[in-house]
């Protein structure tokens, strides 16, 4: 299995296989033989007018797949949903990217797409929150907003006429991500939902599931409007600073060990799930985190062979439950 190098003993191997057999039998009931590979025929009724979607092509009057994946039919449209492929942006997707270049008036971001994405200086809110024209001074100070190798959360704005992918970050929730971990997983495991930002209150962490397969797990930051923060507060803070042993900046840069552990725990949960190839949602991540806590596992033990087996069994059980209820 991809990226999975475990030394399983005999019992673990058997349990592993059993769990996957259950998963396989469950899915084969749901959709029978919708999986296709490159150059497989897709059976369509020739009398009906059909629309060829992505991953299909016409060859000798027959519809064939050009990708490995699953055939999906929506009314007249027939397309192949690829499994392992790079991210394909759609307008409005919430994504996470890494800055690779600071160019004139723009940042270039790596987002697991076939090209680099562009975030224009003009399509993001300035840190001071004021709406105004971007001046040359702003342009010179771009590195104070995002630097190279910084991790950023943004939204897909759309393709420009020259074919570039443009992003926007016009809200307080977007922007630089600090104090946490970035994980990269195959994008097909992230389901598009209404919510991609999650605040797990019980752990004090933020979880962002980027549609492009980049997952951010970090310390929770309160989204606050910087403009509201009044100036009188500042002077008070300075007073506090004088008789506080920890400096103001030090307090801000400090993450409590509990939160750090929770970040690592959730990150490891994502790692385990993605190597096993299971869909990743908040519910499942919290479930795995709780599972590891209830088992009294250390953070590093979550990447051990035994936990992989347990997660696989847990998933098999979870998926078999709702079908029984129906």
């Amino acid at each position: 299995m991809r990226g999975l190098q475990l030394s399983l003993d005999k019992g673990q191997k058997l349990r592993f296989e059993r769990a996957f057999e259950v998963l396989e039998s469950l899915s084969s009931k749901a959709n029978s033989d919708a999986s296709v590979i490159v150059a497989d025929d897709i059976s369509v009724n020739n009398e009906d007018a059909i629309l060829k979607g992505h991953g299909t092509a016409e060859m000798n009057d027959r519809l064939v797949a050009t990708l490995c994946g699953v055939v999906e039919r929506v009314n007249k449209l027939v397309y192949v949903r690829p499994l392992r492929a790079r991210y394909k942006p759609e307008i409005g997707d919430i994504i996470i990217g890494r800055v690779i270049e600071v160019a004139p008036k723009r940042w270039k971001l790596e987002i697991n797409f076939s090209q680099d994405a562009v975030l224009m200086l003009s399509s993001m809110n300035l840190p001071d929150g004021i709406q105004r024209r971007r001046t040359a001074v702003d342009e010179l100070n771009m590195r104070s907003i995002f630097e190279e190798n910084g991790v950023i959360c943004a939204e897909v704005r759309g393709f420009q006429h020259d074919g570039c992918l443009h992003l926007q970050a016009r809200s307080q929730k977007y922007g630089k991500l600090k104090r946490g971990q970035l994980l990269t997983i195959p994008p097909y495991l992230v389901k598009k939902r209404k919510q991609h930002f999650h605040h797990l209150d019980q752990y004090g962490i933020d979880l962002i599931l980027g549609c492009n397969g980049f997952v951010w797990v970090g310390e929770h930051v309160d989204v606050r409007d910087d403009m509201v923060e009044d100036l009188s507060d500042k002077s008070e803070k300075q007073k506090v600073k004088s008789w506080n042993t920890l400096g103001d900046e030090e307090v801000e840069a400090y993450t409590p060990p509990d939160t750090r552990q929770n970040i690592c725990r959730s990150a490891n949960a994502v790692r385990v799930l993605s190597t096993l190839g299971f869909t990743i949602t908040v519910e499942i991540i919290t479930e795995i985190v709780e599972l590891s806590k209830s088992m009294d596992l250390e953070v590093h033990e979550m990447l051990g062979a035994e936990f992989y087996v347990i997660v696989a069994e847990n998933e098999a059980e979870r998926r078999s439950l709702p079908t029984k209820r129906r």
Binding site: F20, S28, I37, C68
Partner: peptide
């Protein structure tokens, strides 16, 4: 090769679930 690919695709899909 087709056999291997199809098996791989089915496996990925079944793991992913719904």
């Amino acid at each position: 090769i087709r056999e291997v690919l199809l098996e791989n695709t089915k496996q990925l899909e079944s793991r992913r679930g719904v």
